[in-house]
Simulated scan of single mutants.
Amino acid sequence: MSTGQMHPGQHPIDDDLVRRLIAGQFPQWSGLPVERFPSGGTVNAMYRLGDSMVVRLPLVRGGAKDVAMEQEWLPHLAPRLPTAIPEVLGAGEPAEGYPWPWSVYGWLAGELPEAGALSEPVLLAKDLAEFVAAMQSITLPGAPQAHRGGPVSSLDAETRAAIEELRGIPQEDVDCDAAAAAWEDALRTPDWDGPSVWLHADLMPGNLLVDGGRLTSVIDFGCTGVGDPACDLFPAWNLLPADAREVFREALGVDDATWNRGRGRTLSQALIALPYYRRTNPAMAYNARHVIRAVLGES
């Protein structure tokens, strides 16, 4: 859960605003209780609506396009996937001083997995591989480009800037020389030259739900679209221990170049997230530190 404002231009959202939005646009649900749901998410605020729904509202302008993305594509993706994903029950419009579109979804039960505390890591690795493979097998016309789905080099400037910023934060104890070397290695890896594939493109632990250690749901498709399959290898380093990581790779049949790009992309995301969220989002900062240790531990 956030401990402060994460982003410039973040819109204030509270229970009363959500109640007014629901009452004005979905009066059939206006009598249901509304309660903020603590989340480590960085783009949306989440509110439970009764027992069976959740309201998701962008915190910043950049999140508004993700709402439209999900409303358009989730109904097409859901029947093609082996794992439950959010169902859009209501498409909200700007109102009550709130400036962006928002959504009501069906509630998906489950717990967030935590790196280092998985009860069934190998089985979870197989579940994740099944989901990723199913995403990659989808063929739908008019697919958007996934966020982060382009070449690894498109992340270079921001990644290098983050490494330099981390050099100035000694309390984080990041081996910045090793991080820079690992990033250089990723940049030397050949780009993906095959067809673009469907991706979730943000398979962070906070976007996965488990029960009994097994994957039950995948949420937050705001980054979805087509691109380099390496983009969906994030769980290998942000969640899975080394043995399960290999199970994940083998189940997907990932070649060396794609694996190296996936590792580099995951490291890049962590290096950028750590200085940005270290004071405002403990969950994101914790996972970023885990990823950096996991990737550099392989080097």
Rank of each mutant, 00 (worst) to 15 (best):
E130F: 03
D185V: 05
E72K: 14
L140M: 12
R61A: 15
A45Y: 01
V254A: 07
N281D: 01
I272A: 13
A64R: 07
E184M: 06
A186D: 04
G168Q: 12
P190R: 04
E158T: 09
K65Y: 00
G90Q: 07
P141V: 05
A242D: 13
I219Y: 01
Q71W: 09
M1G: 14
P101K: 06
S2Q: 14
G116F: 06
G110C: 02
R56Y: 01
Q171E: 14
R261E: 08
A91C: 15
A242Y: 02
L124P: 13
S52A: 15
R56H: 00
R80D: 00
A161D: 14
P27A: 11
E93H: 14
D16W: 08
E96H: 15
A180E: 14
A257N: 13
A288S: 15
W29K: 09
E70R: 06
L21P: 14
S137H: 12
R279H: 11
D51S: 14
E130K: 07
P58L: 04
P275A: 00
L155P: 00
Y47A: 00
R20G: 04
A236R: 13
W102R: 00
S153E: 10
S137Q: 13
P79Q: 12
A133N: 09
D228S: 09
A64Y: 07
H290T: 02
G116S: 07
E184K: 02
D255E: 12
L252T: 12
T280R: 07
H7L: 08
Y105S: 10
A68I: 04
P99Q: 08
Y47T: 00
S119P: 06
L208F: 05
V174Q: 03
G110W: 01
L123Q: 11
G110K: 03
P12G: 04
R245M: 05
D175A: 13
S39K: 00
E72C: 10
P27G: 07
Y47D: 02
T189S: 12
A134K: 03
D175C: 08
A84I: 01
R167Y: 01
A288N: 02
